[in-house]
Simulated scan of single mutants.
Amino acid sequence: MENFFGLLKQEMFYGERFDHFYQLEQANQNYIIFYNNERIKSIFKGLSTKKFR
Rank of each mutant, 00 (worst) to 15 (best):
F18H: 06
F18R: 01
F18W: 07
D19K: 15
D19W: 10
D19L: 14
D19A: 12
H20R: 14
H20G: 04
F21T: 10
F21M: 11
F21S: 09
F21G: 07
F21H: 11
F21I: 13
F21R: 10
Y22K: 15
Y22C: 09
Y22P: 01
Y22E: 15
Q23S: 12
Q23Y: 07
L24W: 05
L24H: 02
L24Q: 06
L24R: 02
L24V: 08
E25T: 06
E25I: 05
E25W: 11
E25M: 08
Q26I: 09
Q26M: 09
Q26L: 08
Q26F: 05
Q26T: 13
Q26R: 11
N28P: 00
N28M: 14
N28L: 15
Q29H: 08
Q29I: 14
N30P: 01
N30C: 07
N30E: 14
N30V: 04
N30G: 01
Y31V: 08
Y31C: 07
Y31R: 08
Y31F: 15
Y31E: 04
I32G: 02
I32V: 15
I33A: 13
I33F: 12
I33Q: 15
I33S: 09
I33K: 14
F34N: 05
F34V: 00
F34A: 01
F34W: 11
Y35T: 00
Y35V: 01
Y35K: 04
N36Y: 02
N36A: 05
N36M: 07
N36V: 02
N37R: 04
N37M: 03
N37F: 01
E38T: 06
R39L: 08
R39A: 03
I40E: 09
K41S: 08
K41A: 08
K41C: 10
S42T: 12
S42N: 11
S42L: 10
S42P: 02
S42V: 07
S42Q: 12
S42Y: 07
S42I: 09
I43F: 10
I43N: 10
I43W: 03
I43K: 14
F44I: 05
F44Q: 06
F44L: 15
F44W: 09
F44A: 12
K45Q: 14
G46A: 05
G46Y: 06
L47D: 11
L47G: 05
L47R: 15
S48M: 02
S48W: 00
S48I: 00
S48N: 02
T49K: 06
T49Q: 06
T49V: 10
T49H: 04
T49D: 04
T49N: 03
T49A: 14
K50N: 11
K50Q: 13
K51R: 10
K51N: 11
F52E: 08
F52G: 00
F52P: 00
F52V: 02
F52K: 06
F52D: 03
F52T: 01
